Simulated assay, not measured.
Amino acid sequence: MPDDLMEIIDESGEVNSDLISKVRLELFWSLSDLGDDGATARQLKSALNLNDGAIYSNLKKLEILGYLKCELVLFEGKELELWSMTLEGLEEWKKVKKWLCRLLECSGDSCGGY
């Protein structure tokens, strides 16, 4: 268990600070669990209880960063955007998750395996 909080704070420099927001962490967590299947914005919006502005602005930002990809699919005659993580996104998620777990362990909480 890490004892030096300053060491953990220094390690935060290895994590892209653009990801450290509640909505972006929720999107990353959700999409990492779904793998290549991904999810539509509507599914993510409903599952995470987000409004249109929050979901679309954060999905687009993560796409610009290269962490998400968007593919148009036809479903029941409608064209939908299917969002999934890129390989770069999955690698960044591993770094963020590892750092968050170290931070939580330092505060005395158990994070489980990363």
Results as ranks from 00 to 15, higher is better:
107 S>M: 14
44 L>Q: 08
34 L>I: 07
6 M>T: 10
70 C>E: 13
108 G>E: 12
18 D>S: 13
32 S>I: 08
52 D>G: 04
37 D>P: 01
107 S>W: 12
40 T>A: 05
74 L>K: 14
51 N>A: 09
92 E>F: 03
21 S>I: 03
8 I>Y: 01
106 C>D: 05
103 L>W: 04
101 C>V: 12
41 A>P: 01
97 K>T: 03
108 G>P: 13
44 L>S: 07
83 W>R: 15
96 V>Q: 01
31 L>N: 03
12 S>T: 05
71 E>H: 06
87 L>D: 15
82 L>F: 09
29 W>I: 15
73 V>N: 03
110 S>A: 08
64 I>D: 10
9 I>V: 14
20 I>E: 00
42 R>K: 13
77 G>Y: 02
59 L>Q: 05
8 I>G: 00
67 Y>N: 07
27 L>H: 10
65 L>S: 13
107 S>R: 12
80 L>A: 11
25 L>V: 15
60 K>T: 09
70 C>D: 09
94 K>R: 10
48 L>N: 05
17 S>A: 11
10 D>C: 04
79 E>A: 10
32 S>C: 11
49 N>R: 07
83 W>T: 15
104 L>P: 05
52 D>T: 07
35 G>S: 06
63 E>T: 07
106 C>H: 13
50 L>A: 02
54 A>D: 12
12 S>N: 02
98 K>E: 13
58 N>C: 04
37 D>A: 14
78 K>S: 09
5 L>G: 14
87 L>V: 10
28 F>W: 05
100 L>T: 11
32 S>P: 03
55 I>H: 03
110 S>G: 15
40 T>I: 04
47 A>H: 09
93 W>E: 08
21 S>F: 02
96 V>D: 01
19 L>Y: 00
79 E>F: 08
110 S>V: 08
82 L>H: 07
47 A>M: 07
61 K>G: 06
109 D>M: 15
42 R>M: 11
103 L>R: 01
33 D>C: 06
42 R>F: 09
67 Y>K: 08
37 D>Q: 10
46 S>K: 14
68 L>W: 02
78 K>F: 02
77 G>Q: 00
79 E>R: 14
92 E>H: 08
16 N>G: 04
55 I>S: 01
82 L>M: 12
85 M>S: 06
59 L>H: 08
103 L>K: 04
43 Q>G: 09
18 D>R: 13
4 D>W: 00
38 G>Q: 04
41 A>G: 11
5 L>Q: 14
42 R>S: 12
55 I>L: 06
55 I>G: 01
107 S>F: 13
32 S>F: 09
45 K>C: 11
33 D>G: 09
40 T>V: 03
49 N>F: 06
18 D>E: 14
80 L>F: 15
101 C>K: 12
69 K>R: 14
109 D>R: 14
4 D>P: 01
36 D>V: 06
93 W>I: 07
15 V>A: 06
22 K>Q: 10
38 G>I: 05
96 V>I: 04
65 L>E: 13
6 M>G: 01
